[in-house]
Each structure stands twice: as C-alpha cells, then as structure tokens.
Amino acid sequence: MPSAEIMTDAVYYGLGFVTLMAAVWVVTLRSLFRAALCLGLVLAGVAGFFLLLHAEFLAFIQILVYVGAILTLVVFAIMMTERMSVSAEIISRRRVVVAGIVSASLFACLSLATQKVLWPHIREQDVVSTAAIGQQFVTVLVLPFEVISLVFVAVLVGAIAIAAKPKSSKRSA
C-alpha cells in the first residue's frame, strides 16, 4: 500500500525534524531551563523512534526514566543554582567557531561512513519481543543485571554522601 508507506515516511521525517531542532536548541539556548525542556523534547522524539522500531518496552523506559526522572532532577538542579546561570553563557566567538568545525567534521565523517553502506531492509519477523528481553535478563544477562543493581546502591549512597550538608562544621570557602 503506497499511501501507508508515505504516511510512515512522513512520520519518520517529522519526528526527525522535531528531534534535531530540539537538539540544536539544547546546545544553543542561553537559558539553561529552556535547554532542559528542549532536552525533554529530544528524549520524547527518540522514544518515538523506538516506537517506530517496535521497541515499545524501551520507549516506555525512556519516557519513564529519562523524561520522568533524569529531567526532573536536572530541572531541580538548575533551579537550585539559578543565580549563576544568568550570566553563564558568555563564550568567545572563536570557541564557538572551533567547536562548530570540530562537530561538523565529525558529522561529515560519520555520515559519509554510514551512508555508503547498503544496509539490508528491515524485515517484519525480526521484531524483538519484550518477553525475549525479559528471558535474556534472567538467563544470559543475569550477572550484569545484578551488577547494575549494585551500581544503583553505590550511586545512591555516594550521591547522598556528596550532596548532604555537613552537620557541624560550616565551611565557607
């Protein structure tokens, strides 16, 4: 059905356009708060690509963890350090030019390397089901899965130890 294909293509291109525009805003906007909101748009766009690639579980995890948890945390941190972020983004023009050249050449290298290759077409029967992922996590990948939970505990303790206010000695450097 050609009309369905055109629809899918339109969804792909629209999602790509939104994602890239939001990504440009993330790195260029002066206000860090708005940049964080645009990062939320990028994450949602990537989650949309996951849905198009039949990775529904990952799409929901992306929304849940990235947009729900990490972004909220980042917004809180921006609010707590807000006084600094007003005059923060005054950078020299030379640095922007150099960074632009570096990242543009990086993009050119990556896209030249990947666009010439003839990738096989996506087949319908290659969809990875959520049940298969769960099966992997309790059989083959059980050790990394447990190590990740250990890392979570370490991060929790470490973050509390770093960010907690010292009780008695008030240092003012």
Binding site: A23, I90, I91, A99, V102
Partner: peptide
C-alpha cells in the same frame, strides 16, 4: 550521528 555531533558541540561550547 547528528545528535552525537550536536552533543559534542555542546560539550565544547557550554560553560
């Protein structure tokens, strides 16, 4: 790759 390059650009320019 565009997302990656934009991220590198941000790493190089943000203070």
């Amino acid at each position: 790759s565009a997302l990656f390059s934009l991220g590198v650009f941000g790493l190089l320019t943000r203070r």
